[in-house]
Each structure stands twice: as structure tokens, then as C-alpha cells.
Amino acid sequence: MFLPLSASLASSPVAMAGNRTMHAVQYDTYGGGPAGLKHVDVPVPSPKKDEVLLKLEATSLNPIDWKMQTGMLRLLLRHKFPYIPGEVIGVGSEVKDFKAGDKVVAFLTPHTGGGLAEFAVAKESLTVRRPPEVSAAEGAGLPVAGLTAHQALTQSAGIKLDGSGKETNILITAASGGVGHYAVQLAKLGNTHVTATCGARNIEFVKSLGADEVLDYKTPDGAALKSPSGRKYDAVIHCASAMPWSTFEPNLSSNGKVIDITPGPRALLTFALGKLTFSKKQLVPLLLIAKKENLDFLIELVKEGKLKTVIDSKHPLSKAEEAWAKSIDGHATGKIIVEP
């Protein structure tokens, strides 16, 4: 959801939208994986009065993109076919806070999508300025992965990123991935001790992000989520695939909670049972609520060098299927970027 405003649109971006076509990648049915993606030419979208028109410079993929394609989230996130997924950095149209030539970061909702294309539209209320210190590729991961990590830590886990408050023991699973690598860095801005899990090849990488101790998830202790220092976790930011509650529960402090960023049916059932039994240990499903001020905060951290986007790989829009397949594979280190 990051894009620079293009001076080429300065004359009349809205008028241009109705007269030009653009290259885009879309799917028109559930299923199919990378083979289900289609390269098409479609009209440049026209922004509504509260939207900005974006010119794509870089976009990043998130698991929600291909999960929506499988139909996994069809009850929660209904959308019409054909669907163009993704997050975007782009160019703004004539709205009060932006002008052609501005550099911006914008959030595209899963309901509308539009990121795997040359142009997209986004709500002005979810669009912020991008300083020159933040590149398009660096910023592309923030609107979904960065905001998810921020919300999980600050709202769900109650971590204060100014370092105040008592020390909190945090576990971050899949810490080398898109959300995980942001979560480690953000957590260390607070008064936290961070335990992290990842694959063996990424242990030193996750340590470099600031994690205090790192577990190989394929080892017995890693699979059991046991802290090497014997700590109990006040909060778990769970970025990996589904795990049974019985794996988490013995590792939690008396009031510990598990924040599940991709909750499935079993997680939702565990959440409901915890509420019904008034358990002090809780599983908390997370649904991202994007806020402009939080996106601004993350961009400022990147500008100041306090947060970084690690780029796993870059792919041209013409080969978006490769990026899609890599995301489905689930072993990316940091963010997968698509560029026109």
C-alpha cells in the first residue's frame, strides 16, 4: 500500500482514468493458485470523491491474498469477481490533502483490493505522506504486515513502544516472516524480553532484529515453544500456522494471552471456550483495523532508522505468479515485493 504520486497525472487524473487502460493481474473464481491468476488489460479505476488515484511503484503480498483466492475467508470477506488483490504504493488524484507529485503510502482494504495493477484507488483517510528517506519497496509492507504487528503488540498485548511500563515477556512465532520480522523490531522498542521462533537458517537474522532468544521451530523445544531461559510468556504474537491450545497453555503466565493473527475455526472455538469458562489465559483472534495515525507512526520509525522492511525478493508484475507461489510456500524471509 505504498505509492508515489506521479507528476504525469497533474493535468487531470480523474479524466484520465476513464480514457485509459492498464495492465493488471486478477482471478475470477476461487481456487487455482498461481495458475488461476490472469494478466488482463482493464480500465484505469476512477476515484470517488473521498479517494486518491494511485500509480503503482511497488506492492507486497500477504497470506490473506492467496487465502482469499482459496475461498478460506469467503464468509468474512466477500468480494465480487474478477478480483485484483494486493497492497499498493501509488499516485493520488485531486483530493484536499494531496496533490499530483506527492509521495504517499495508502492502505487498500481486502474488500476492494487492486494492488496487482498499474493503478489503484484508496481512501484518502487511509493515505499518508511518504518521506524521501522511505523507498517504495521499504514501505510496501507497512500497510498490512506492519500495521498487524503494531496492533497486536500495542492494542492486544498492551505494549508501550516508548519503553515505559513493566518488563513483559513476549513470544513471536514465525519471526522471520512478514508480520513477525516487524513484530520483533517493534516489541524491542518497548520494555520487553522477546523469544522468537523461526527456521534454523533464519536464527541469526532474527537475532539481528533484536530478539533476546531464538528457537528453531523444528527442534523439540521449538515445537513445544519452551523459552530457553525458562520464562513464561505474558503474550504470544502467533504468526505461524495453527497450533493446538495445549501447546501454548503451559508456556503462558497466569494472565497470558495468545494473539492469533490468522485465526482459524479451532482458534475461534478456543477463544469462545475461554470466554465461557472465564479463563485468565486467553486466545485472542486479531482482525486488523487500519488507522492512518498508526501508519504514519510506522513510516516515521522507518525514516528514523528504528524499523526496517526486510525484502525477501522482488518480482515484476509480469511475473506475479512467481511471487504468489512464493507467498503460498510460506518460507519467505521478510516481504515479497511486486514491481511494475
Rank of each mutant, 00 (worst) to 15 (best):
V310L: 06
R231D: 15
V40P: 01
G274A: 06
T262S: 12
L56R: 04
P265W: 08
P131I: 10
S208Y: 07
K232P: 10
E167I: 10
K207L: 12
K99Q: 14
P265N: 01
N19A: 13
E204G: 09
G210M: 07
F271R: 03
A224F: 04
E293M: 02
P220S: 14
G114R: 00
D216E: 12
L225G: 07
V338P: 02
F107Q: 03
L286P: 01
S227Y: 15
Q26T: 10
G264F: 00
L116P: 00
A58V: 04
D234R: 02
A100S: 10
A223P: 03
A290W: 06
R130Y: 10
A196V: 07
D102Q: 08
I337F: 09
V52L: 02
G230A: 13
F2D: 13
D212Q: 09
G256Y: 00
A137I: 15
G71Y: 14
T70K: 09
K188D: 14
Y217N: 11
G139F: 01
G230F: 13
P110V: 12
A136H: 04
E304V: 04
H181A: 00
L54P: 01
K80L: 07
Q155P: 04
T154D: 00
G141L: 01
L142D: 05
A323D: 11
P4E: 14
L317D: 08
H150P: 07
A187E: 04
G330S: 03
H181F: 02
A183N: 05
V338C: 06
P228C: 05
W324E: 05
E249H: 07
K49L: 06
V338S: 00
V128C: 10
E94C: 11
K226Q: 14
I170D: 06
K123W: 11
Q282D: 03
H79Q: 12
D65L: 02
D234I: 10
E300Y: 07
S93Y: 07
I84Y: 00
L73H: 02
S60D: 09
Y217F: 14
K326T: 12
G33R: 03
T59R: 01
F271Q: 13
D97S: 15
G139W: 04
V105L: 03
D260G: 13
F98I: 10
G36S: 07
A140W: 04
G92D: 14
